[in-house]
Design a protein around this nucleic acid. Structure first.
Lengths: 337, 337
DNA sequence: TTGAAAGCGCTAACAT
DNA sequence: ATGTTAGCGCTTTCAA
C-alpha cells in the first residue's frame, strides 16, 4: 500500500496524489476529492520514513527522557509539548531507560527525524566535549546542568534550579524552626548527580549554622524508588537516632519516608519534621501535606523550549537559566517543641 | 553527513561502509577498523528513515500510550518493554494525548516504522470495524476491551481485568464488613469506558445485596485528576451524607479522597472505609495504606506481548485474556462498628 | 492543472 | 573482500 497504489486506483499520477496529501492549492476539486476517497477506501497512510527522507528539513523538536514514569517529569513534558506545538513545531518524544546513553539516543533521533533541536530531560551531569560532539544540533539540558563534567558554559544550554542552594534553603528552613538533629535521605552522596549536589547544600546549611555533620544521620538508598526510601528511613529509626527533622532530596522518596516514620510510631510533624524538593502533584495529598520546594515544572519546560527555539530560529548562543523554587507550606514541618 | 561522506573519507565504497555498520562478516579487519575510525571521527549516525525505508521489514513492535504520565501505565510499560526486548524485538513507544485518535496514531506508526504489531494502552472502549480497518497489522488492547463498541471478538485481542466484576468484588468487600451506606467516586457514569463499567459493578453489588442505589452517594469528577477527586469528595461530605464507606474507581483518585476525608475530620478507617482498584506503587505509601484491588501490571504487559508475538510469529488468531486482580489488604477498610 | 523524473540515504543483490 | 547499482516511498522541480 503505497502512494503508487493510490495513484493507480484513482487514475492519476503519484505527484498529484502527493499534492492532495500535502494540501497544495493547484489541484482541481474533482481530482482532490477522488483521491481523498481512494485514500479512505484503501486506508492509506503515508510512510513517514520516505517522507522524512526526502523533505529538506522537518519541524521536529526532539525530547529524550530518561524515565517518562518519573512523576516530576510529567508536568515538564506537558509544558514542553504545549510550547512546542504553540510555536508550530512538532514534538518527538523518545524514552530511554537508565542504562542507555541519552546523547547517543539524541544523536540518533536527530538524524532519523531530522530534528531542529533537542531537549534532554533527566540526563547525566558529567558530559565531556567529546560526548556532546556527536550532537550537531542545538540542545538544552532540562532540569540539570553539567556540574560534574567538563563542558564549557558556552557549549550547552540548560534550565535548572540551583540544586545545592535550594537544598541549603530547605535545610535552613528546618534550622530556623529550631531543629539541630537533621537527618538526610538521598540516593547517594557520590552519584555525580542531583543527589550529590543536594547533599552539598545539606552540608553547607549545617556548617553555616554551626552544626556538625553526623554521618549516621545520612541515609543512602542507592536508587530513587520508594521501597528503598522506606527501608532506609526504617533503618534510620532503628538506629534510634534522635533526629527531629528529615530532609529528603525528592518528593517521591519523602512520601515513603513519611509512611516509614509513621509506621515507626513517629507523628509528623510533632515528633519529626520533614521537607523535600520537587513538588510533584501527589505529594500535595499526603497527610499531612508534604512541605516542599516546588520546582516550577511548567516554566522549566517552557523556558527550555524558548531557549532552544531562539537558537534554532535566531541563531542565538547557548544560554543558562536558573529558576527558583517556590515553598509549598504543607503540614509536615513544625517548630522544635 | 551521509554514508557517502564516510565512504569517501575512508577511501572505500558505500556498500563496504554499510557492511561494517551492519556487522556483516565479509569485511577485512583492516577496512573495518578504518571505517569505524572515520565514523567516530565524523560523529556519523545513520539516518534511520533511509534505513527503515529500504529494509524489507523491521523487528519493531509499537506501543501507543495515552498518557505516559499515568502511574498505572508505568509498570505495564516496563513489562512490555522487557518482554519485547527479551523476544529480540524492538519497542517503539508513541505517546498521544487525550484528544488524539490512537488508531490513527497506531496506523501511522505502523507505516512509518514498519511495525510487526501494535499494543494500545489506554484506548477507547468503543471502536467500530471501520475504524480498526485502518490497522493492517495485529494489535492488542492492553487494559481495556471493546465493551461499548461493535467489534467482533475475533477482530481484536485484549488483556484486561473484568472491570465490572472487580468493581463488584470491591464493593462486596465493603458490604461484607457491614457497610450499607456506600458512596462511589468516579469519572462519569456515562463515559462509555472504564468508569462506566466499574459503576455497573458498584450498582450490581448493591442490588445483589438488597441495597438501593442512592444517587446522592454517586460523586462524578468528569476527569481522572486528583484535584477534581478531592473536590468531589469534599462536596460529598458537605452534603453531610452519612456514608460509612467509599469505593473509588482508581487509586490516584483514592489518594485525593483520603486526604479530603481526613481534612473533613473523618478518620480512616474508623469513620469511613475506602477501597479502590488499580494498585499503583504510591498508594502503598498512603497512611493508612490504601486497600485496593491490584491489577497485575507486569503480567498484563507481558501477556499482551505474548499474544501479539503469537499472532506475528505463528499467525494465531486474536485472543482475549482476562486477568484477576489481587487484593492488597491495606488499612483503609474496617468493619462497620 | 497535471505528469514525468530526479533524488533523499540506505541496503542488498549482483559483479568483480 | 570490495565495488556498482537498483530500488525502498515520497516530494519537488521541470515540462507540458
Amino acid at each position: 500500500m503505497t502512494i503508487k497504489d493510490v495513484a493507480e486506483h484513482s487514475g492519476v499520477s503519484v505527484s498529484t496524489v502527493s499534492r492532495v496529501l500535502n494540501n497544495h492549492p493547484d489541484v482541481s476539486e474533482a481530482v482532490r476529492s477522488r483521491v481523498m476517497e481512494t485514500v479512505r477506501e484503501l486506508h492509506y497512510v503515508p510512510n513517514s520514513s520516505a517522507r522524512d527522507l526526502v523533505r529538506p528539513q522537518s519541524d521536529a523538536i526532539g525530547l529524550v527522557v530518561r524515565g517518562v514514569g518519573n512523576p516530576f517529569f510529567t508536568g515538564v513534558i506537558r509544558a514542553i509539548e504545549d510550547t512546542i506545538a504553540q510555536a508550530g513545531y512538532t514534538m518527538v518524544l523518545h524514552q530511554i531507560n537508565s542504562g542507555e546513553d541519552e546523547l547517543r539516543a539524541g544523536a540518533e533521533l536527530a538524524r532519523s527525524k531530522r530534528l531542529q533541536g533537542l531537549i534532554l530531560l533527566g540526563g547525566c551531569f558529567d558530559y565531556t566535549p567529546e560526548q556532546t560532539a556527536a550532537l550537531d544540533i542545538p540542545f538544552v539540558c532540562c532540569s540539570y546542568t553539567n556540574s560534574f563534567g567538563s563542558l564549557k558554559k558556552s557549549a550547552y544550554s540548560s534550565v535548572s534550579i540551583d540544586d545545592q542552594a535550594e537544598a541549603r534553603r530547605a535545610v535552613e528552613l528546618l534550622i530556623q524552626q529550631g531543629h539541630r538533629k537533621i537527618a538526610v535521605l538521598l540516593d547517594s552522596i557520590h552519584d555525580h548527580s542531583i543527589s550529590e549536589l543536594r547533599y552539598r547544600g545539606y552540608c553547607q546549611a549545617l556548617s553555616e549554622n554551626g552544626l556538625s555533620l553526623d554521618s549516621e544521620l545520612v541515609a543512602e538508598t542507592d536508587t530513587f524508588d520508594m521501597a528503598a526510601a522506606y527501608e532506609a528511613t526504617r533503618r534510620l529509626l532503628e538506629q534510634k537516632k534522635d533526629f527531629t527533622a528529615l530532609f529528603v532530596i525528592a518528593d517521591s522518596m519523602a512520601i515513603a519516608a513519611i509512611k516509614a516514620l509513621r509506621d515507626g510510631g513517629r507523628r509528623i510533624p510533632e515528633d519529626c519534621s520533614i521537607i523535600a524538593i520537587d513538588g510533584i502533584d501527589v505529594s500535595a495529598y499526603t497527610v499531612p501535606t508534604l512541605t516542599t520546594l516546588i520546582q516550577p515544572q511548567a516554566s522549566m519546560g517552557g523556558e527550555a523550549v524558548r531557549i532552544l527555539l531562539d537558537m534554532v530560529e535566531r541563531g542565538t548562543g547557548n544560554r543558562h537559566v536558573r529558576v527558583d523554587t517556590t515553598l509549598r507550606v504543607g503540614g509536615s514541618v513544625a517548630p522544635l517543641n
